[in-house]
Design a protein around this nucleic acid. Sequence first.
DNA 1: AATGAATGAGGTTTCATTCAT
DNA 2: TATGAATGAAACCTCATTCAT
Lengths: 189, 189, 189, 189
Amino acid sequence: MPKIVDAVQYRRELLSKCFDLFAEKGYANVTTRQIAKELGVSTGTLYHYFPNKQVLFEQLAEQVSLQDVEILQKVDKDRDISQRIIDLGQLLIDHQDYIIKQAAIWLDFRQHCSAREVSDNVVFQQIDLRYERAIAELLDLEDSQIASFIWASIDGIAIAQLDRQTNFVTQIELLTQMLIAYFEKHILT
Amino acid sequence: MPKIVDAVQYRRELLSKCFDLFAEKGYANVTTRQIAKELGVSTGTLYHYFPNKQVLFEQLAEQVSLQDVEILQKVDKDRDISQRIIDLGQLLIDHQDYIIKQAAIWLDFRQHCSAREVSDNVVFQQIDLRYERAIAELLDLEDSQIASFIWASIDGIAIAQLDRQTNFVTQIELLTQMLIAYFEKHILT
Amino acid sequence: MPKIVDAVQYRRELLSKCFDLFAEKGYANVTTRQIAKELGVSTGTLYHYFPNKQVLFEQLAEQVSLQDVEILQKVDKDRDISQRIIDLGQLLIDHQDYIIKQAAIWLDFRQHCSAREVSDNVVFQQIDLRYERAIAELLDLEDSQIASFIWASIDGIAIAQLDRQTNFVTQIELLTQMLIAYFEKHILT
Amino acid sequence: MPKIVDAVQYRRELLSKCFDLFAEKGYANVTTRQIAKELGVSTGTLYHYFPNKQVLFEQLAEQVSLQDVEILQKVDKDRDISQRIIDLGQLLIDHQDYIIKQAAIWLDFRQHCSAREVSDNVVFQQIDLRYERAIAELLDLEDSQIASFIWASIDGIAIAQLDRQTNFVTQIELLTQMLIAYFEKHILT
DNA sequence: AATGAATGAGGTTTCATTCAT
DNA sequence: TATGAATGAAACCTCATTCAT
């Protein structure tokens, strides 16, 4: 009888455990040995659950994107638009640490995909689409470009945190205000 | 004396030549041999002009940041704020390809710096400050947070281009409108 | 007691089942996991019946050599020499597929033994002797060198099949004719 | 200025130097580190001259096949057939050590090729053809099957030497006599 | 100043074998 | 007995860097 009963669940746990490592050091600067050590398993076990480092990372990226969408869905959709924008901002601030790390991983993943042949870009685009839809739905947006813009800004702000002293909270508040001003002027009325 | 001047100039040329390479593949995915080949020199020559790959990349990042600031300074400061925001947007659109690549390099560099001991973060922060000042000056901003926000958004939009189909022009126009709406509501009056 | 008999029999079945696998891919290119899969058991079970991959292979080689001798013994020893040579050839042709695979395994095993310390060369030589005797007996040979030669030629022809387009049947017929011509000239009369 | 002027020549020397190693231990049992050590270079240098272990081995096999043909061409073609057969036998005996090792490598290579996708089997068959032609030409053979047979027998005999005590000289002499008897009976007259 | 062959530490991955269940 | 997850030594290979020419 095998020791691990639910391989799928265990894989998820392993991925969660190396989230910080990848976020802090970046895909290229993390060795498989480091990952194994961080996870408390041998390199052999690593390769028992993931065919290679690349796929491990891709699955991490996918898992992260799912969690992101989950977070976004916490916003109460019964409130009015301005309030929802503020709620979104608050949500991002509440999950500050996670959002910053998630952006780092996402950036890394993006670079990886573009550095590859083609093929799996489909997977990539699907994930990207998922983000857009989550935001569009959240703010009743018909224009997906606005959703893209919001997510791009969030990523930009998050990544800037990696080493600048700018204040994440202030930056997100600015984004919130920008959005409200924009909506008031162009969309509501 | 003239020799040295040549060397400085030559170094600059070398850096310019590998701009695209780093932008497209990322620091970790570019080998010194690839760089040498792209530059049309031997690896030995590469190491004659730069002590190592790291420094080469740092100097590239620095050179890029200087060029960015140069571009920003093309905006005519005699126009009113709204117009200057529009001009800034137009400038970014005009230099679209460059802006996207520059963002890729910059983010790559940022990750590199944060993945390292500490040390040169000073160099890094200085460059970052230069960006902020250029934007702050351009838009008569007293609050450096807004400048940071703008630059972060631009970076976010730029890297989203790396593989998404979003339209850079549309995204920059959105940013422009956001800024104008925000300025009209909170800063002008 | 019955248990043990079963185990011996089971081991034999397992060995037979991985005959093709080893013949086609070679000892070094077959993993224990592949073997286990081919046999329809787990790697754990494999190690329950055989102490390690090496021994498994050695036992397979031994089992194969026994089967070979069995085949050779089908020749009717009452016929005259020429006829027996022809019968031997026919026998090889009839068991074409098996002979080719058996040769592949045997050569693989030989290489393995010579690449090792020493030790089990005794086992190896015993098996080799068995081959020679079977052939010598079959053709009433006093000179074991001739038996060795015949077996070496058969092996040579068999492995040439592995990728060349030469025709096994034709090659064996040639061998038959060579032997007959040789016997007529030097041994008979 | 590079240190090694004639890379092609150097590659040949490197291949020659690892001939024994591969012949004695077999492709799978030789590590790249062992090869490097045997050659007196670093693993890096190894990979400077050969893209990978596989190709290194393939090039060795090709080089060996060329040397074999060279050896065969030493036979004086003005003598009569029987004499040429004897000369061929003598040649093999003179190069005994080499022939045995070459056979080991060739066997190994053959297994490798059949274990691979397909593609380069063309290369393989070309080499094989080269052998046949060399023998066919040597003995004025119209039938390539006989050439194949001869080469297969030589390989069989050589490989049998790897661990058996049979005498190479005796075995080759037997082959010679077989061939002469066969030729006298079926071809000459 | 320029070259590119040489280096070797260290990265990713494989796989025979063990062992808890 | 049977399982297959877990192990880790060791394999192949890469690549930043050095150095003889």
